[in-house]
Design a protein around this nucleic acid. Sequence first.
RNA 1: UCCUGAGUAGCUCAAUCGGCAGAGCAGCCGGCUGUUAACCGGCGGGUUGUAGGUUCAAGUCCUACCUCAGGAGCCA
Length: 430
Amino acid sequence: MSAFTIETAARFVDQTVTLKGWLYNRRSSGKILFLILRDGTGIMQCVMAKNNVAPDVFAQAEAIGLESSLIVTGRVRAEARAAGGHEMDVTGLEVVQAVADYPITKKEHGTAFLMENRHLWLRSRRQHAVIRIRHAIIKACRDYLDANGFTLVDTPIFTPNACEGTTTLFETQYFDDKAYLTQSGQLYNEATAMAFGKVYCFGPTFRAEKSKTRRHLMEFWMIEPEMAWATLDDVMELAENFISHIVAFVLDTRREELKVLERDTSKLENVRAPFPRLAYDDAARMLEGKGTEFVYGGDFGGTDETLVSEGFDRPVMVHRYPAAVKAFYMETDPADPGKALCVDVLAPEGYGEVIGGGQRLADLDKLQARIREHGLPEAAFQWYLDLRRYGTCPHGGFGMGIERCVAWLCGLEHIRETIAFPRMLYKIYP
RNA sequence: UCCUGAGUAGCUCAAUCGGCAGAGCAGCCGGCUGUUAACCGGCGGGUUGUAGGUUCAAGUCCUACCUCAGGAGCCA
């Protein structure tokens, strides 16, 4: 009986249960009171008839404000008229705390107000659905890699050097030294892949880019698998199977939440491997005459990504970008030395890049030359170069940004809703 | 960092050419035994983001600043 939660109400039909939760909404019709409670697992309508409870209990229930914490006792009943399919006939009520003036009301609010009250906004139905889908996505990521021979080896958050010299790092004091917050676990992944074969890391990453768009956070979570003895083709195959598994798992286990979000799930049903593969040169050709500012040889902008992906009903894998626009550790294409053996997976419906990865440069001399060309401090990379001195081999992997994946699967306008407490440009409260 | 837009009641927004500061929701009081953002009647609620300026008169026009939102670049 103590195990009752709203989510499992179907198992408790015709039983008297105790529900601990919060007052989500209330409607009244004279001598009958509809208390809509939430308990973290769902929402349930609790019906209190005036002649079923003591007069003071009824009066108390009429007076308490939204988000009052309550312990309600009553009998569970299947009821088609109630959202969720079940409701409770209330016989007992204990008010743990009567709340007045809960800031978030039933009518519409602006984004600024809701973000200022993010700690309370999380209680709302939409936000609840998003965070539960996020959880399902993370579980699917781990399950897939765990079931396919990958070992979780987490990488450090404090790092002494930049992974990619171009992006901005958050600098922090490390006793008498400076340290930076990680922006990728990839270089360390390469070390652990040489020790364990197939590995992944999963954790927060930090980018001090002054980006102010619907696709950027200063702090975001990234899952990064890395495989020894892998080519670009292996990396692409992993990426499409990985994403297919995640989408299938979410469709399978989070239907209710997708419904709350009014997500068009037909667009997600198509997401099955294999994904179309598009060479950079072909993608660039698709952009010709589309009126973008894209110039051949450069990277794609957000609108370019949308233009490329809109011709496909599932994610598209764009590979072999010009080496000049990619990071120093990318392996070059033996068939075209100007190109890097890399891949970006572009999500459909304009959600853009969710995965970036590729095959890593395996040769010691070439890697040393590349580090010099990029003006990176060679001394800091000695441990990384050791990986090429002692048993180098073809290897590769990718990183997937969890928040972009959540935004895509949930069909969200803005990435700020994909994490409980988003860190955004100049905004770090609450 | 750059470009654009917005700051008016607790919240979401009105306010015509510069001429008495308004509505819905929330709150409070009352009504209703099946409501679905319930509904119906009544009441209270304002230093119009901040600081200057123009004017008989500024929410409205001008200047600066602050905050927020949208977009760009960069990226996942």
